Computed example of a mutant assay.
Amino acid sequence: MAVPPPTDLTGQVVIVTGAGSGIGRATAHAFADAGAHVLGVGRRKDALEETAAGRPRITPHPADLRAAGTPQEITDVAVQRWGHLDTLVNNAGATQVMPLAETTAAGIAALFELNVTAPSLLARAALPHLRQRRGTIVNISSTYGHRPLPGAAHYAASKAALEQLTRTWALELAADGIRVNAVAPGPTESQALTAAGLAAATVEQIKREEAGRIPLGRRGEPHEIASWVLRLADPATTWLTGQVLTIDGGLELA
């Protein structure tokens, strides 16, 4: 389902991480449909090519955000191709079920490396260019960044860290005219649960249970999140920074 863009973003340049599926793919589509040039970053080349299919404004860029030097490489590719950078969307992340009794140092490190360290280093690499354009950063958190998630505490903690980074960067970068906000989606249709290594039957059970807890009675669709990412990044949204917008069908209230 296409989402009409709230404004014309022709000439804007955007980096979207995790662009191979789900919210990242929908976000790349939304920006491209609004006229922006999009560097779609992800680990799977085939998935990125599917994202870019039929949308020439999206350029796929396969990369592992955890590899040394990748944040600078991604930023350089975008700026060299289009001359500047207006928006960074930190969407890439991992979900992991890890009860306390099964917690390992490696498991914690892997979650925080992708969910906290990678977006931090990419934002640092992008910063000089965002300063030039008085650009914006949109981080993708989760409703579980500010509510408990038994059995996946460290995933929730990593998203809580990203929300605190959002608020702190907003203050730190305000003098440069850079706005920093976050979107915190509730359970949304994507490949995240499967990518976490859960069996198909378990994924379906989790989806049914989640839908049953959401006041609006269903899980979200990626385009419903992407439309708000677009609004937060819109240059016309001139006086909003440091905010975490929860989009979860009312789950936060339940």
Rank of each mutant, 00 (worst) to 15 (best):
residue 121 L to G: 05
residue 104 T to R: 09
residue 102 E to A: 14
residue 126 A to T: 07
residue 121 L to K: 04
residue 125 A to R: 01
residue 125 A to I: 06
residue 106 A to H: 08
residue 96 Q to S: 14
residue 107 G to F: 06
residue 105 A to I: 14
residue 122 L to Y: 01
residue 124 R to D: 07
residue 128 P to C: 05
residue 112 F to D: 06
residue 117 T to W: 07
residue 107 G to E: 07
residue 114 L to S: 09
residue 119 P to W: 00
residue 108 I to W: 02
residue 123 A to Q: 00
residue 116 V to A: 08
residue 109 A to Y: 00
residue 99 P to R: 02
residue 120 S to Q: 13
residue 126 A to Q: 09
residue 124 R to W: 06
residue 124 R to V: 09
residue 124 R to F: 05
residue 107 G to D: 10
residue 128 P to M: 07
residue 99 P to Y: 04
residue 121 L to I: 06
residue 115 N to W: 01
residue 103 T to D: 07
residue 124 R to P: 02
residue 103 T to A: 14
residue 127 L to K: 00
residue 99 P to I: 04
residue 98 M to E: 11
residue 127 L to H: 01
residue 99 P to T: 05
residue 115 N to I: 02
residue 123 A to M: 02
residue 109 A to Q: 15
residue 122 L to V: 04
residue 98 M to L: 14
residue 102 E to L: 13
residue 113 E to G: 14
residue 110 A to R: 00
residue 107 G to L: 05
residue 115 N to D: 10
residue 126 A to L: 08
residue 123 A to C: 05
residue 101 A to P: 05
residue 111 L to A: 10
residue 105 A to P: 08
residue 109 A to L: 11
residue 119 P to K: 07
residue 97 V to D: 10
residue 108 I to E: 02
residue 115 N to V: 03
residue 126 A to C: 15
residue 113 E to V: 11
residue 124 R to T: 08
residue 101 A to D: 13
residue 107 G to Y: 03
residue 114 L to G: 07
residue 102 E to H: 13
residue 121 L to T: 02
residue 118 A to W: 01
residue 111 L to C: 08
residue 110 A to W: 00
residue 119 P to H: 06
residue 99 P to K: 03
residue 124 R to Y: 10
residue 115 N to K: 01
residue 100 L to Q: 09
residue 109 A to C: 11
residue 107 G to P: 05
residue 127 L to A: 05
residue 96 Q to M: 12
residue 108 I to Y: 00
residue 104 T to A: 13
residue 114 L to C: 11
residue 123 A to K: 01
residue 110 A to Y: 00
residue 107 G to Q: 08
residue 113 E to C: 13
residue 116 V to G: 02
residue 116 V to Q: 05
residue 109 A to H: 12
residue 105 A to N: 14
residue 115 N to E: 01
residue 120 S to P: 02
residue 128 P to H: 06
residue 96 Q to F: 00
residue 117 T to Y: 07
residue 98 M to A: 12
residue 128 P to T: 04
residue 128 P to V: 08
residue 119 P to G: 10
residue 106 A to S: 14
residue 102 E to K: 11
residue 102 E to C: 09
residue 109 A to W: 00
residue 125 A to C: 09
residue 109 A to D: 15
residue 105 A to K: 12
residue 100 L to P: 07
residue 98 M to N: 11
residue 122 L to D: 03
residue 111 L to S: 09
residue 103 T to L: 14
residue 101 A to N: 10
residue 105 A to R: 14
residue 107 G to V: 06
residue 107 G to R: 05
residue 114 L to I: 11
residue 114 L to E: 08
residue 104 T to V: 11
residue 125 A to T: 03
residue 117 T to G: 12
residue 127 L to P: 00
residue 108 I to H: 01
residue 99 P to F: 04
residue 112 F to P: 03
residue 124 R to E: 11
residue 118 A to H: 07
residue 105 A to H: 12
residue 128 P to S: 05
residue 124 R to K: 15
residue 122 L to Q: 01
residue 124 R to S: 08
residue 110 A to I: 00
residue 115 N to G: 05
residue 117 T to D: 13
residue 112 F to A: 08
residue 104 T to S: 15
residue 113 E to D: 15
residue 114 L to M: 10
residue 128 P to R: 02
residue 114 L to V: 10
residue 99 P to S: 06
residue 100 L to C: 12
residue 103 T to P: 06
residue 102 E to M: 13
